[in-house]
Design a protein around this nucleic acid. Sequence first.
DNA 1: ATCATTTTGCAAATAATTCGTAATTTACAC
DNA 2: GTGTAAATTACGAATTATTTGCAAAATGAT
Lengths: 137, 137
Amino acid sequence: MQEAISNFKDHLKKHGHFATKPRVQLFKVFMRHQSMSMRELIEALPKQDKSSVYRNVDLFEKLRVIKKVQLGWKYKFELSELFHEHHHHLTCLACERVIALDEDLVIEQEIARLSYRNRFKALEHTLEIRGLCTDCK
Amino acid sequence: MQEAISNFKDHLKKHGHFATKPRVQLFKVFMRHQSMSMRELIEALPKQDKSSVYRNVDLFEKLRVIKKVQLGWKYKFELSELFHEHHHHLTCLACERVIALDEDLVIEQEIARLSYRNRFKALEHTLEIRGLCTDCK
DNA sequence: ATCATTTTGCAAATAATTCGTAATTTACAC
DNA sequence: GTGTAAATTACGAATTATTTGCAAAATGAT
């Protein structure tokens, strides 16, 4: 917990940015939630001006602190593999429930193989499987 | 080509919607392009009112004619596997170039396995690998 | 503590999306 | 083809989301 925060601060500084209070607060919001939409972030930080939230979300994305993920019809943000265990998503198109899957070695390996074959340096990836969950199908 | 269009029309009718001229035009735009953003769609159909484009994109998404995909920092729409060969994406975060990969059996199989294990009916999926292409790394 | 620089908050501008409604178009029965 | 009911469209207006400019506040280094 504390370690993640100081890693985060180092990450910002290493890239020439200040580890300000609003940024740490934003980071903590991401630590508390699996994924957050822009609207949810703004609501979770009522003291902060929303343009600052926008700016910092952009910055976090550029620095790969967070990444954008699709979840059903929406897109949200969540901590990148630099700050959180990697996982994949099953999203129910009916009830919009999201099931997070643990890292899958078969898929990770295949992604490594595909990247290598295309002389591509893979930094991150997202896999979303959309369909119907047990209750909805 | 013609066949895809009549399949599309049947698909609409089967689900209780009219195969109108604006919808067929929109479908043709998707046939001509790998992927399109909302803005690109509106620009590609200057005769159509943009609220109609929005409504039809929503409808297409609901009927799974198209699906939303992430491409780098943006998201776009492209024909779903019902109307186009399935594929995955490598996106360069620096130059934003997108490399489309052919269907990959290892990944498809693993997705089938994961879905089965979670009693989930998978309808579609998207995989995006983000990183740096040969020229940018 | 001081200074140069970055970042924030605020207000205003711009862009994206949704909504209401009248006019048009569609599918279908004749 | 013509008529008809229902769906869909275009248009304008309203909302919502995102971006921008700038003064004030906060940051890290000295």
